[in-house]
Design a protein around this nucleic acid. Structure first.
Lengths: 332, 332
DNA sequence: CTGAAAGCGCTTACAG
DNA sequence: CTGAAAGCGCTTACAG
């Protein structure tokens, strides 16, 4: 590959000037010289080496993203949104998939500091991730979910507890009095907030309701399994609140397999509200997280260099057919 | 951040030795010296700078991936598989989402050569992508779909034509004699092979069958739209062959909306065969692409530095309920 | 086994 | 407006 030196030689000038024209600064260049440089660069198909640039410039113009599973629609939409916002600022997005394992998460953290990303957005497996490597390196990070109080990083998220209460309340308003909570696989600030919000609504509206909680993997395969067992019982719950859309899809699958009608026999709500939630059978009532806004805020926060901000964004309850008979959108 | 120089100073040695211990070579280091270096590095929480390393080492240990839409499950599973295989070789995967736009694709191509990825895997918007920037930079690339003959890059893919014929044949064997083809949005080697395979089967098994072709976006929202129009006609087709699972989900949605039963009123097949295809309602008959194998082969090919290989991998027809009443797996 | 030094390809004060 | 040179943080022959 041609280097700035090659271009400079062919244009009869110095590498400094080549740098000035490719960066539009910090010094001006005579129009004619710029022309010669550009021509030489084109003839040699010169591409500045971003590594060398980053090394001397001190910034890589890249932001890292760690997610539990890039194949999960919610994280896919998140990655798409973040990449777009990052690109607007000339930054590239590096994606690390932790496969829901702490060790993989740590490997990505290590890889990101070695590559000197300027900042990172994380959806951790835990509410108490070990972000010390980033702290040591002075790399700011923002989590897109609730974080343990002790963690020294920013977070941007909807109010999970309020959202859970809102969806559960909606279910209870349909009159259902036995209701299951499908929560995530690990005990964390997030799962606690799902449970707290769920119970808030029950206490408010139907303290006598029959309640049960199940912990499942996020993958619909596993949620389906658990739902199959639960719904085969004669005493099956009338409604199921799920902590993610993926789990809700698993529950829908189980209902169909057992010949149960949704919502007539079993009502279901999801959480995350990706585009696909409108296309399930039946369309899913779900809490919608404002992905574009979260991406926007995350990148802005990181660019501003703010540290340890705990920010809340508004959710929406998208009411569709899986929860019962009627439907409009209710803002949070 | 601490540098090798800092570590060397604290350990009372040179940066060369620091490099030797962190790379386990190419020179040996006295056990005691290694100890001192490791201790100093730990005390300073030293992290080698991958940029500097890449600059002098000449390789970045990174492979780029370009996909049309990372939020699409098929590409998500692909990214996940590729990242895993790349990680086994100590490589990191950089993902670029082209949003199905050539301009974005070009931006990612440019970004990847500037960052000097060692190689790239691409799922292009086109069968004739402009990969010259990679060629200029000596970066090997492999596409995971059919490529135009003229393109000077490798490709690994299933035999689309045979796969399309297999799925279509399956539909015809159910006795359906009016059948629609939902093809992708652009005319390309891929869409041509879908059409050719589709027609191969029709000519073979039911030359008199009524056939129609529709071009839709991949997104289920748009496929649903087109299906809604088509299925509302009194003369609607009895079966729909879709070039992607996403389109098939759109068709399923349209059927449910119109109160049509699947497969009793309309039979549907998909293409790609991600994990989710088993969880739709009804479960989707689909052509399964061997994602792990494709990822494995792609990385191996690139690592071996092979150029312009056209490789075919085996597909599977996953027969489920969306196409009619019976079901087993048929290998290709 | 280890150190001093050149080099990877940029950017940016420093001179002129 | 432009050039020579130092420096970013590594790796790797080259000596010893």
């Amino acid at each position: 590959m041609a280097t700035a030196k090659d271009v400079a030689a062919r244009a009869g000038t110095s590498t400094a000037v080549v740098s000035y024209v490719f960066n539009n600064g910090p010094r001006g260049v005579a129009p004619e010289t710029r022309e010669r440089v550009l021509r030489a660069a084109a003839e040699l198909s010169y591409r500045p080496n971003a590594l060398a640039r980053a090394l001397s410039f001190g910034r890589t113009l890249s932001v890292g993203l760690i997610v539990p599973d890039i194949a999960n629609r919610f994280f896919g939409e998140l990655a798409r949104a973040l990449e777009e916002v990052a690109a607007e600022r000339g930054n590239i997005l590096l994606i690390g998939d932790s496969s829901q394992r702490v060790e993989r998460e740590h490997e990505h953290i290590a890889a990101f500091v070695e590559r000197r990303v300027d900042s990172v957005v994380v959806v951790s497996v835990s509410d108490d991730p070990d972000l010390s490597a980033f702290a040591d390196a002075g790399i700011p990070v923002v989590a897109l979910h609730p974080l343990s109080e002790s963690v020294n990083a920013s977070s941007i998220s909807i109010d999970y507890r309020a959202a859970a209460a809102s969806a559960t309340r909606h279910l209870l308003e349909h009159g259902y009095r036995s209701i299951a909570l499908f929560n995530g696989p690990t005990e964390s600030a997030g799962s606690r907030q799902h449970r707290d919000g769920f119970m808030d609504a029950v206490r408010d509206l139907a303290p006598g309701a029959a309640v049960e909680e199940h912990s499942t993997q996020i993958a619909r395969a596993h949620a389906a399994q658990v739902a199959l067992d639960m719904l085969a019982r004669p005493s099956r719950p009338r409604a199921v609140y799920c902590a993610t859309d993926e789990q809700a899809y698993g529950v829908l699958f189980a209902c169909h397999r057992l010949g149960l009608r949704v919502p007539d026999d079993v009502a279901v709500t999801g959480f995350d509200g990706t585009e696909h939630s409108a296309y399930s059978y039946p369309p899913l009532t779900t809490v919608r997280q404002p992905i574009p806004e979260m991406a926007e805020r995350a990148i802005a926060l990181l660019a501003a260099g703010e540290e340890r901000v705990r920010e809340t964004v508004d959710f929406t309850l998208a009411v569709r057919e899986s929860c019962g008979r009627h439907g409009t959108d209710v803002a949070s």
